[in-house]
Design a binder for these strands. Structure first.
Length: 920
RNA sequence: GCGGGCGUAGCCGAAUUGGCAUAGGCGCCAGACUUAGGAUCUGGUGGAGCGAAAGCUCUGUGUGGGUUCGAGUCCCACCGCCCGCACCA
């Protein structure tokens, strides 16, 4: 038996698979297809353990599907446009393209070391002109169909990134990538009309997606039902408001506009102008972030203007306040202080009138003065003219009788209409950056815009440009000087597209990355589409995953799939519904967190100075007990030369001056403060915390097969959890054991009868394992699947040592174990498979099937309970009748003492598992 | 504040959907081999108690209650943690 040499085995098979094209995927209508997709990485330069965690289980599942007889497509590529490349250009004076392609090259080899079955001939790189020409093509198509449009709007501007961002990319007023604040700016930008698809995007019926993702998308789209009503100002201008509670219109005692609302100017009377202007200036200067922080106290100013409440002709004052957002609804509200908590607070703050219009069920009629908060519960309408007495419930929209009655009344009187409002805004896709796909548009001298002619596509990014932190496109005449369709001088659009645009269609490019007549080859599309299973991180819930769904729906409506659908039908495949959604099944992996680490135990001498101790000596001693005059405890945190030590008396801050001596026995040479290890909690991995795990090093120490196995074994995949550097040893031992089992020379020493019985037991284990692993691998439950394989390993170890089973049973066990493990640990199983004398690859073998007949046992153990507690166990045949089971239970030896002298009240039998005897 | 999820051993985690709680792994303990062990192999390992031992009894899934012959699983209340949304009109 040779030793398990993972290095040479893994290199050998990776080379051979590639040379033989083992993972090439070709259209074959005779076989069922399976398109497995995992989110494409950004080429940052290095894969971290999270990439392995996302990709290798997806690879394992794709491999299972292949062994199950599917023709599997499992491609890979790079989401290669983006800001880090430009930052590298500024900081290291290297062109973004060069930086990106060098990273890609390094990451390709890291991907190879995973041993994944990526079909490299289908690789797509989004920053390559052969790719982004189609990103441009999509933009132009969207423009022609009225989905892409240019508009002036308040947008999120990031000073740090020097670009605008989409709403989805701003979280709590901060850029989601860097956490830097954004400000609101009025700018003319390109948008995609994703809101046209809002209702369709709320449909998830045909999707097998995680509930939280569907919920997040639903919340993000934010559909609410209500009515739109116009209030008329003294100048005759209409202020449109959207409300979900039109039934409370009679209680609307004032209006509030967003400070940026266009009618503020004309509404404001002279004596209030200064206050209004001041307030607007403050609001404009606030970042979105600050605006949210000022949560509690309501602020605002009166414009001096009035508008007419259309239902009762009351003149009501119009205020401005920053709790009303221009970006939601119409940017103006009717305020109903009696029944809306925000309006209530505002009214109390500024002494505005409150008129209750709901009489709460089971309570006294409300008095405006006595109210302590807005009433939002059920009741009957009062003070509300035509709808007085109508019941109001907590239901939303027309399901609420009072709302339905009001909408009908409003529409009949032509005062308003039923309306649906969405929180979702159109997708802002312009970016004032260089490293992205150019927007293929031209600004004419006459102020109009037109798309670049087809024969002049793609617009290529100029290479010879300088990087200083802003996009060079706007300052490079060779790029922006162009002509329009009539040959007149014109200026090229210098903004590029959001990189989410590139990733909104990449899985189509994988189908035919070299195809020149369209974004994808319809022949390939007809066979492979749609994606059957998609895996990746949940952080893309309302960005990539929402954009991707929108993109496919827009593509469908623009006829991009027409030819593919035709071809599908020619091959007898029903195309209906297959081009409505990109990813039928979606699963999110969890996150691997950093490992908990104990800090060094320190013994410190020094003197107290103010609220800290200045150290003279610092010594690491894991065994140190309390010592007089010394500070002894675990190092919890270190910032430069300041240490936080958890001593018996509490946290102590210790300053370590240059002059102090630092002694770390385990670290040779002169020691200094930076070598001390501080405590780490379980938290997200990050370089700054020093708790990252480098997959390359793990592969170096244990081999890719072990790393893959461990990643799939140690966590519930959809949950993730803290890394455990000891735990990987268990997987390493498992792979080594498999190596030993696979290379063992087995000889049976038993007589025929013993062998038959032992073999039956082993085969039962084998076939049970097949059933378990088969189920778990398809269901993304790798941890329990591998646990089953480890259990089989244990059983086989026993069989090997006992030598009782027949040679045939042993061979079946070994081969089955290898096949079941092949998707998880592809190299070692391939090597062992070859060692067993097989000429072909184990990865071309078919997936094992279990024989139900072998699963049944001759006897099973039945639990006998008395009053619900297990008191004995009896061996019985699995097909025992209920009566026989009860008889066996009552006859069981140890049951007698528990039933003696008592009355059996009831017997519950669940043969062959359990009998419960109830006595009193 | 609203919505969703979770809580099982020293740790990561199982539990066929209401039927033997703790599979598998890590760690730990004991033993074997060894110059050595952070290698390998064998066995043990929720807690408490009884027993020379085989074993037996009690107890145990965040806390308290409920339904049930039977609850980690279902229901109610509470505590804690995580995630999403958050002045959304």
């Amino acid at each position: 038996m040779s030793n398990y040499d993972f290095k040479s085995i893994e290199r050998k098979w990776q080379d051979r698979w590639e040379a033989e094209g083992l993972y090439r995927s070709k259209v074959d209508w005779a076989k069922p297809k399976h398109y497995a997709l995992t989110m494409l990485p950004y080429p940052s330069g290095d894969f971290h353990i999270g990439h392995w965690y996302a990709m290798t289980p997806s690879d394992a599942r794709a491999r299972v599907m292949r062994m199950k007889g599917y023709n599997v497509l499992f491609p890979m590529g790079f989401d290669a446009f983006g800001l880090p490349a430009e930052n590298a250009a500024v900081q290291r004076n290297v062109h973004p393209a060069k930086w990106t392609y060098e990273n890609i090259e390094r990451m390709r080899s890291q991907l190879r070391s995973m041993g994944a079955m990526f079909d490299w001939e289908r690789e797509a790189v989004s920053c390559d002109p052969s790719y982004y020409q189609w990103t441009e093509w999509f933009f132009k198509k969207m423009y022609e169909h009225g989905i892409a449009y240019r508009d002036k709007a308040m947008v999120n501007w990031s000073e740090t990134l020097q670009t605008v961002l989409a709403n989805e990319q701003v979280i709590d007023g901060k850029d989601e990538r860097t956490g830097q604040p954004v400000v609101q700016k009025l700018m003319e930008q390109w948008f995609f009309a994703i809101t046209k698809y809002a209702d369709e995007l709320l449909e998830f019926e045909q999707l097998d997606w995680p509930e939280p993702i569907k919920t997040m998308q639903t919340n993000w789209i934010g559909r609410s039902e209500g009515a739109e009503v116009s209030f008329v100002t003294e100048h005759g201008d209409e202020i449109d408001v959207f409300t979900t509670r039109p039934d409370t219109l009679w209680g609307a005692t004032f209006m509030v506009l967003a400070p940026e609302h266009p009618l503020v100017d004309s509404l404001t009377v002279e004596e209030h102008r200064q206050a209004v202007d001041d307030y607007r200036a403050i609001a404009a200067g606030r970042s979105e972030l600050e605006r949210m922080e000022t949560e509690r106290e309501k602020t605002g100013v009166f414009t001096g203007g009035y508008a007419t409440n259309p239902v009762n002709q009351e003149q009501i004052p119009v205020w401005i306040a920053d709790y009303v957002l221009l970006s939601y609804g119409t940017g103006a509200i009717m305020a109903v202080p009696a029944h809306d908590q925000r309006d209530f607070e505002f009214a109390r703050q500024f002494g505005l009138e409150i008129v209750p219009v709901i009489h709460p069920s089971g309570a006294e009629a409300p008095s405006a003065d006595a109210m302590e908060e807005a009433y939002v519960g059920p009741g009957r309408m009062i003070n509300s003219g035509p709808i007085d007495g109508t019941e109001t419930t907590e239901a939303k929209g027309r399901a609420n009788p009072s709302i339905a009655a009001t909408i009908d009344w409003l529409e009949q009187k032509d005062l308003g209409s039923e309306a649906i409002n969405y929180r979702l805004r159109d997708w802002l896709i312009s970016r004032q950056r260089y490293w992205g796909a150019p927007i293929p548009m031209v600004h004419r001298n006459d102020g109009g815009v037109e798309p670049v002619a087809d024969d002049r596509l793609p617009v290529i990014l100029p290479e010879d440009v300088e990087f200083e932190g802003r996009s060079p496109l706007a300052t490079t005449p060779a790029f922006f000087e162009t002509t329009d369709s009539h040959g007149r001088p014109a200026r090229r659009e210098t903004d590029t597209m959001d990189t989410f645009m590139c990733s909104s269609w990449y899985w189509f490019r994988y189908l035919s990355p070299h195809y020149g007549d369209g974004p994808f080859d319809p022949e390939e599309a007809a066979y492979w589409l749609p994606v059957d299973v998609y895996t990746g991180g949940a952080e893309h819930a309302v960005m990539h995953l929402l954009y991707a769904r929108f993109f496919v729906k827009a593509m469908r409506d623009m006829g991009v799939f027409a030819r593919a659908a035709e071809l599908m039908k020619e091959h007898g495949r029903e195309a209906t519904g297959l081009f409505d959604e990109p990813f039928l099944v979606l699963r999110n992996q969890g996150q691997i967190l950093g490992e908990e680490r104990r800090g060094d135990r320190l013994v410190v001498s020094g003197r107290q100075q103010g609220n800290r101790v200045v150290a003279t000596t610092v010594r690491v001693d894991e065994a140190a007990g309390p010592e007089g005059g010394m500070i002894v405890g675990e190092l919890m945190r270190r910032t430069e030369n300041l240490l936080q030590i958890k001593a018996d008396t509490g946290l102590v801050t210790v300053e370590v001056p240059e002059s102090a001596s630092v002694e770390i026995p385990l670290v040779a040479g002169t020691n200094d403060v930076s070598q001390l290890r501080h405590h780490l909690d379980v938290e997200r991995m990050s370089k700054s915390k020093g708790n990252t795990v480098n997959p390359d090093e793990l592969v170096e120490s244990y081999g890719a097969d072990t790393v893959r196995t461990y990643l799939m074994f140690a966590f519930d995949w959809e949950k993730g959890g803290p890394w455990d550097s000891q735990g990987i040893l268990g997987s390493y031992r498992f792979i080594q054991d498999v190596w030993k089992l696979g290379t063992a020379r087995y000889e049976s020493t038993a007589d025929a009868e013993t062998a038959a019985q032992a073999s039956r037991a082993l085969r039962r284990s084998v076939h049970r394992t097949v059933r378990k692993v088969d189920h778990d691998m398809v269901a993304f439950k790798w941890n329990t699947g591998i646990a089953a394989l480890m259990k089989l390993r244990n059983t086989m170890n026993e069989s090997l040592h006992a030598g009782m089973v027949s040679g045939e049973a042993w061979d079946e066990a070994v081969q089955t174990l290898l096949k079941l493990l092949a998707p998880i640990a592809p190299h070692v199983t391939e090597e062992l498979w070859q060692g067993l004398g097989h000429a072909g690859s184990i990865h071309l073998e078919s997936w094992p099937q279990w024989d139900p007949g072998l699963l049944v046992e001759e006897t099973v153990t039945m639990v006998v309970q008395v009053n619900g507690k297990v008191r004995d166990r009896v061996d019985i045949p699995p097909d025992i009748s209920e009566d026989d089971a009860i008889e066996a239970a009552l006859a069981a030896e140890r049951i007698q003492s528990w039933t003696e002298g008592k009355t059996v009240r009831k017997v519950i039998a669940r043969p062959p598992k359990l009998v419960n005897i109830v006595v009193a």
